[in-house]
């Protein structure tokens, strides 16, 4: 199972040096997160210690070691969004999804909430991205309405 899904990725990168990040990006694209088995599989094939993969995977914000929710909510916490009230929006999202602070995925795995530093759309702050669709000039009430659509 793992072999079948990882092999194409291996073939794409085994010639290149320093491809750990690219491999992990593709693994995440394939599985939605980084499964432990996949890491050991690549470590074995490429003769790179699994700890190197783990080190990289935990260093970068992009990688996730646990499965994520079906819908990804990205809330921007950049300067402009902070000044314009991103906190209130995030609190409302947590409230709506009954997700306490410190957790990022709902129990039914329907939603994952991610707080990022800046999505670079400051002029329409505060910004929330749901499944790659950008919602600008948000307010807590607007967000509640949007979330009901899912």
């Amino acid at each position: 199972m793992i072999e079948q899904r990882c092999k194409p990725i291996l073939e794409k990168y085994y010639r290149e040096d320093g491809s750990i990040i690219s491999i992990l990006q593709d693994v995440q694209e394939e599985f939605g997160y980084i499964p432990e088995e996949a890491v050991f599989w690549f470590s074995d094939k490429l003769n790179i210690p699994a700890s190197n993969f783990y080190g990289v995977a935990t260093f970068y914000a992009q990688f996730h070691l646990r499965p994520r929710g079906k819908n990804l909510i990205t809330a921007c916490c950049g300067t402009a969004c902070h000044v314009k009230g991103a906190d209130a929006i995030i609190n409302r999202i947590r409230e709506e999804l009954a997700m306490p602070e410190g957790e990022d995925t709902t129990h039914d795995q329907k939603f994952t909430l991610e707080e990022v530093a800046c999505v670079g759309a400051c002029s329409i702050a505060p910004v929330v991205i749901i499944n790659k669709k950008v919602y600008g000039k948000g307010t807590p009430d607007k967000i509640s309405k949007i979330l009901k659509e899912f």
Binding site: D17, G18, V56, F59, Y60, A61
Partner: peptide, 26 residues
């Protein structure tokens, strides 16, 4: 093109280089 994986420190030159080499961006 090398896509960064989400680390502010990688804007620093030597960290950026480490990241392109596939390492932790330190």
């Amino acid at each position: 093109i090398k896509e960064g994986a989400g680390a502010f420190i990688c804007g620093e030159e030597t960290a950026l280089i480490a990241s392109i080499e596939g390492k932790r961006g330190m």
